[in-house]
Amino acid sequence: MPDLPNPVDLAVPAFVLLVLAEMIVARFRDRSRYCPRDTLTSLMLGFGSTIAGVLAGGMVFALASWVHQFRLFDIGYAWYWFAIAFVLDDLAYYVFHRSAHRVRWFWASHVIHHSSQHYNLSTALRQTWTGFFSLGFLFRLPLFLIGFPPAMVFFVAGVNLVYQFWIHTEVIGRMPRWFEAVMNTPSHHRVHHATNARYLDRNYAGVFIVWDKLFGTFEAERDDDRPRYGIVHNLPDFNVLRAAFHEWWGITKDVWRAPSLYARLGYMFGPPGWSPDGSRDTSETIKARWQARQERGQHWKKPISSSSVPGPEAAPPRAA
């Protein structure tokens, strides 16, 4: 077995330099793209996620190795197997990521990444502390059953994660058309991070946006509907612990007060916002209200020329 490096470890210096470069661009173009407290929270969550990953990594690798012994095929380390593993791992990521938005148990872990109202390279580093606890790693097990060696899968998964770093930016508008058609880009991923009703639960791709186009979850960024980032119920402060655990705490409270087993299961494994009486907002109810208003013929956006707040009409610039 070759001794493969951890791509994320190797990329850390580049992460730091690129965040620094984006901050300098923000200083001259739009200071509100960064907020120091938000940045510190994002980076501390990223640091904590790395530590959590190290603590859980051994167990995940051991589980992967155990599953791998039941493999269907013997797959070696030829370069083309890396390429195939990369594509299949990205498909597994799509399935995981879609579940992470549609099943509250997984959302509780993933929401951390969406909890910033900013969309910049530091947001990319705002990663979960509870990925192991939420069992998100289960989505990769089929690759080991097929026969891809664990070391190869974790290597390509690291490359996947490194790719996703650069798409968390407003500095880049749109990439060339052919690239936008195949790859996940800043434009596609801005849609994913947006809370605009039109954009909710769209663009789950990691590297290849083709998965969303294939499975009907693609939404293009529109110049007349600028993304607003964050979560539907934004966090009240920049507390790192709140960001890391608030949804788990929400699940705990809901399950504790739930009137029945059905409600308990719904609170844990239903979509985010599910409630037994339907009194809370899910992405479906939000979209329905938005749609109803659209159909009433009232424009969602009302440009106000006297506003001091940047209007939602303008899309992010096409280049820094």
């Binding site: 730091v16 960064y34 907020c35 120091p36 940045t39």
Partner: peptide, 16 residues
């Protein structure tokens, strides 16, 4: 690096 970047964000007076 985390602390340095957060400090630089403050020094650059980002956000507001």
């Amino acid at each position: 690096a985390v602390l340095m970047l957060a400090g630089i964000a403050w020094a650059l007076r980002l956000g507001g």
